[in-house]
C-alpha cells in the first residue's frame, strides 16, 4: 500500500488533495514518520532535499531492487560481447590476425568487461528513471518549492477524507513538530 511513489504516478491523471507538514530538521521528520506509522496513519509520501538515513526503514519501504536489475543487465552485456566476438571470429568471417588463433580469448577480455559495465550502467539508469517516472521535460507536481532547499515534508492524501480525519492529521502534524501545515491539490 505504501509504495507511495508508484501511487503517485499511477494516479497522476487524477488530482490529489494533499495535506502536508513542513519540518526544519530531518531528525524531527524521522520521529514524525515513526509516530505516524505507530498511529497507523497512511502516509502519502515524504519529501526531502537530501536522502535521510533511516527514512526508508521508518516508512517501511521495501529495499530497492535496482542492483539486481544491474546484475542482469551486466550479465547480458558480458554474454553479448563475448558471444558476438566469438561468432564473428569463428563463424561469420574468421580472419588471421598476427598469428593468433581465430578464437583468441585473452584479446576479448577488455571489450567483454567494458560492455558488461556499459550495459549494467545504462540499464540501471534507464530502469531508475523509468520506475521513478522521470524523464527530460517531465513535470511531476511538487508540494512546495522549499522541499529542494531546506524543508522536509510529510504528506497525507485527503481525497474523500472527512473534516474530522483532516483535523486529526493536522493535530498530528502540529504535535510532531511541523513548522508549517498546508493543504494543496496536485
Amino acid at each position: 500500500m505504501f509504495e507511495s511513489a508508484n501511487i503517485h504516478h499511477t494516479m497522476a491523471n487524477q488530482s490529489k488533495e494533499v495535506l502536508y507538514g513542513l519540518y526544519n530538521d530531518e531528525q524531527v521528520l524521522l520521529q514524525a514518520v515513526h509516530k505516524a506509522k505507530a498511529d497507523h496513519l497512511e502516509i502519502m509520501d515524504v519529501y526531502s532535499p537530501f536522502p535521510v538515513h533511516g527514512l526508508d526503514e521508518a516508512m517501511g519501504l521495501s529495499e530497492s531492487r535496482l542492483h539486481q536489475a544491474g546484475f542482469v543487465f551486466g550479465a547480458i552485456g558480458t554474454l553479448t560481447a563475448f558471444l558476438f566476438m566469438t561468432w564473428v571470429f569463428t563463424r561469420d568471417w574468421p580472419i588471421i590476425f598476427g598469428g593468433k588463433p581465430y578464437w583468441s580469448i585473452p584479446a576479448f577480455i577488455p571489450i567483454t568487461f567494458e560492455l558488461t559495465v556499459l550495459f549494467a550502467s545504462i540499464g540501471m539508469v534507464v530502469a531508475y528513471y523509468t520506475v521513478c517516472g522521470m524523464a527530460p521535460g517531465v513535470t511531476n507536481p511538487t508540494l512546495d518549492d522549499r522541499i529542494t532547499d531546506d524543508k522536509f515534508c510529510l504528506a497525507f492524501q485527503t481525497n474523500g477524507a472527512s473534516q474530522q480525519e483532516i483535523d486529526k492529521l493536522k493535530s498530528f502534524l502540529t504535535a510532531s513538530g511541523a513548522e508549517e501545515i498546508n493543504a494543496k491539490t496536485i
Binding site: 503517485h8 519529501y47 526531502s48 526508508d56 540501471m124 539508469v125 515534508c153
Partner: peptide
C-alpha cells in the same frame, strides 16, 4: 527530469549511486 525528492526516489537514487560507483 521532474524530480520531487520523494523518499522512494532518494532510496533508489542511493542504491543507483552505490552500484554505479561499484561499476
Amino acid at each position: 527530469f521532474g524530480w520531487t525528492g520523494a523518499a522512494k526516489h532518494w532510496q533508489r537514487f542511493e542504491s543507483l549511486s552505490l552500484v554505479l560507483a561499484g561499476l
